[in-house]
Simulated assay, not measured.
Amino acid sequence: MPTSRESAVFTVGDRGGWSFSTSTWTNGKRFKAGDVLVFKYDSTAHNVVAVNAAGYKGCSAPRSAKVYTSGNDRVTLARGTNYFICSIPGHCQSGMKIA
């Protein structure tokens, strides 16, 4: 299947990394299925959890959610809206989430 462009790789939060100020990082960016998000963060302080819309809105991770903990996670986007939160208590509520 020919594609119009190669998959793009985005570092979440740019130089600041995955942090409390990333909730607006997606503004003005266009993502496509197959693009890769790289989450860089202190793995002793944060994590990345792939959640659904309800998990994003309610800052809760279902038991079956995929949790990333390496501090340098590469996540390939699926078709549709992808949601990610930090599930450390209080972090998502403080803005550590993106859609």
Rank of each mutant, 00 (worst) to 15 (best):
A65K: 05
A65N: 13
T69C: 04
R30I: 05
A53K: 09
A53E: 13
C59Y: 03
S7W: 14
Y68H: 09
K40N: 13
V38E: 07
T26S: 07
G58L: 04
N72D: 15
Y56F: 13
G58A: 13
I85C: 07
K40G: 06
I85S: 01
K32F: 09
S87Y: 01
K97I: 00
G71R: 09
R74Y: 11
K97L: 11
S87C: 04
G13L: 05
G71C: 13
G95I: 02
N47H: 07
S19N: 14
T22E: 04
G55M: 05
G58E: 10
G55A: 02
G58R: 11
Y41C: 08
T69V: 05
F20Q: 15
L37V: 07
G71L: 03
A33Y: 02
N52F: 06
R79S: 15
N52S: 12
P62N: 06
Y83C: 03
R74V: 03
R74K: 11
W18K: 01
G13C: 01
R79M: 14
V67E: 06
V36E: 04
A53H: 05
N27Y: 06
C59D: 01
C59F: 01
R74S: 11
T11E: 11
A78G: 13
S23F: 07
T76A: 10
V9L: 13
N82W: 03
G71N: 08
D35H: 05
F31Y: 02
S21G: 01
